[in-house]
């Protein structure tokens, strides 16, 4: 119980649950979310669009005494509107992302209520905004790869001996907060006019495909051009079989400020996740 010394283990009837779940955890998890998006792509459109949508995530998490590793893939979409036009002038928003991160436990000694982690993250994100009324410039995107330091703090809580709704007594809750702040990003935006429809005459292959643009327009940017911030707070309910349910609130933003290519995006989502434990009984 070295790691989770802030838990009053004596309050649990079965220490075995804690031993199983806290010494080694390898989870596969699935999440579903409702999201809210604010998006402004100044390359093509002055107004801000905002709306609601949904996300799904699939991930793997390996938790050891010293570290937590996580690989996650997510897809989200939303329908965005502006308050200046009729509702049929909406934009479709899509977000594909994948993350690999590793954080290291830096205060493993007894007596600390909070477990603090520091680590790093490799993050890939593709934001696609389809605004059909903009015709040949209807498709705007921002694709980036970034590296970011991570700060994470966790705290185990207990339910004492009471049963609250579906949360059974004697099972722990894990509250965590994580923030990441990319320092360096490899980012691609559409060509100067966002034209993406010409054909080259050989089999109707698009002249300006998204892929061509992405490859051609990738450049490295640091904080003077691209600022992003991603943070989330999560509450996990750990069950007897070491599977978990979690409720998470995630909030992120990106702001790209290169002249003629600016965009801003604010995202927030409420996730419900199920963690299926794979190796807790090793």
């Amino acid at each position: 119980m070295l790691v989770f010394n802030n838990v009053k283990a004596q309050t649990y009837k079965t220490d075995t649950i804690l031993n199983q779940c806290f010494s080694k955890e390898t989870d596969i998890y699935f999440s579903a979310a409702l999201n809210a998006v604010y998006h402004q792509d100044k390359m093509f459109s002055a107004p801000t669009y905002n709306g609601l949508g949904a996300d799904v995530r699939l991930g793997f998490q390996k938790r050891r005494i010293n570290s937590i590793s996580q690989l996650q893939f997510s897809f989200g979409s939303a329908i965005l509107y502006n308050n200046l036009q009729a509702l049929h002038n909406y934009a479709q928003y899509y977000n594909f992302s994948s993350i690999f991160q590793k954080v290291y436990h830096i205060n493993k000694y007894k007596g600390k209520k909070n477990s603090i982690y520091l680590g790093w993250q490799l993050y890939q994100s593709g934001i696609f905004n389809v605004n059909k009324q903009l015709q040949n410039s209807a498709l705007a995107y921002a694709l980036y790869f970034s590296t970011a330091p991570i700060f994470r703090v966790e705290r185990l809580l207990n339910l004492n001996n009471k049963q609250i709704f579906f949360l059974k007594k004697n099972y722990p809750l894990r509250l965590s907060y994580q923030a990441s702040f990319p320092l360096c990003s490899y980012l691609s935006r559409p060509n100067y006019n966002g034209i993406s429809h010409l054909v080259d005459g050989t089999g109707n292959i698009l002249q300006y495909t998204i892929v061509n643009d992405m490859v051609k327009n990738f450049k490295v940017y640091t904080l003077n051009r691209f600022i992003a911030f991603d943070n989330k707070v999560e509450l996990q309910y750990i069950m007897k079989n070491n599977n978990k349910w979690s409720l998470q609130y995630s909030w992120a933003f990106q702001a790209f400020n290169k002249p003629y290519y600016q965009y801003r995006n604010v995202y927030s989502g409420v996730f419900i996740s199920f963690y299926g434990n794979l190796k807790s009984l090793e």
Partner: peptide, 30 residues
């Protein structure tokens, strides 16, 4: 549970409120 009531929920609500309002600073209203 008392801990939860005292600590967790206000914490989440506070964070949600802070970040939920942040978009107004980052992206101006139309």
């Amino acid at each position: 549970m008392k801990t939860i009531k005292i600590f967790i929920l206000p914490f989440i609500i506070l964070l949600s409120g802070i970040f939920g309002a942040c978009h107004k600073v980052i992206i101006k209203k139309n």
